[in-house]
């Protein structure tokens, strides 16, 4: 108890002294950043790093207003956001800290193993409605999407649908776990989930981004060597003015010790 008390006093003192670094943003990155911060503070007790979530957009907004030192984001900074930062006379630096792969999953009973990006676009925009159109059984396709608030929803829309809208009235689930559950129990289902969520209840399909020349199965190895196409980068953003203060922590994340934590939290190392 005394220890905790003393610790919190130290932490408050650090905040008052302005030494603490603040990281804010993406909920996807939250567990990773927290682990990194913890082990970074263990390795160098003089440092304090405070990590909070709230979503990628929230983090970058805080960076623009100068209320955070690092913004963690599961999507690339938007053109307009970059513009807002440069309006304030600052310039923003981007660091990729890890990768995350999205797997396309179907029900294990489904015979389809290969899908091209064009076919996926057709399925999720409602142009393709039956599995026999993509080489499967005569069965209605039921695509599952995430809710609009999710960063994964946006990334999938950008990367796979090329900014087109999902078909109107697509099934949308509040969490990745719910997609796994539903795809596992629905024969004609298809959905997208983070690589770490694949289990025996769902089957990951091989994806091609070159019109069916090569199909790649999602795995840590294929995502790392760039052969699996649906991979997103996870970013830290900071303004160049505070580079000196934030660089030691970022260097720690990029170091072998930091990257080991990346692998442990289910992401793909650089």
């Amino acid at each position: 108890m005394k220890k905790i008390f003393a610790l919190s006093i130290i932490m408050i003192a650090c905040i008052v002294a302005g030494k603490a670094q603040k990281i804010k943003g993406s909920d996807t990155l939250l567990p990773l950043s927290q682990q990194e911060a913890e082990s970074y503070m263990n390795s160098d007790p003089s440092q304090t790093v405070i990590v909070t979530g709230g979503g990628s957009g929230t983090g970058i907004a805080a960076l623009i207003e100068g209320t955070t030192d690092i913004a963690q984001s599961s999507r690339k900074i938007k053109f307009e956001e970059k513009q807002k930062i440069s309006e304030g006379g600052k310039s923003v630096k981007e660091v990729v800290v890890a990768f995350d792969a999205l797997a396309i999953v179907v029900n294990p009973e489904n015979k389809v193993t290969n899908l091209t990006r064009e076919q996926l676009e057709g399925i999720f925009t409602g142009k393709i409605t039956n599995w026999k159109e993509v080489g499967g059984a005569d069965l209605k396709i039921t695509p599952y999407s995430r809710e609009t608030s999710s960063g994964t929803y946006e990334f999938f829309k950008e990367s796979v649908l090329k900014n087109k809208n999902y078909k109107s009235g697509i099934l949308s689930m509040p969490a990745t776990g719910a997609i796994v559950q539903s795809v596992g129990q629905t024969k004609g289902a298809i959905g997208y989930i983070g690589l770490a969520y694949i289990n025996k209840d769902v089957k990951a399909v091989h994806v091609s981004y070159d019109n069916g020349k090569t199909f790649t199965a999602p795995s840590v190895a294929s995502a790392k060597d760039g052969t699996y196409p649906i991979v997103r980068e996870l970013y830290y953003y900071y303004v160049t003015a505070v580079e000196k203060a934030v660089r030691p922590f970022i260097d720690y994340v990029l170091s072998p010790a930091g990257q080991k934590i990346v692998a442990e939290t289910g992401f793909i190392t650089l």
């Binding site: 039921t142 539903s182 024969k187």
Partner: peptide, 8 residues
């Protein structure tokens, strides 16, 4: 029971 494409 109802042999539906989706249960939701």
């Amino acid at each position: 029971i109802f042999d539906l494409p989706v249960g939701e």
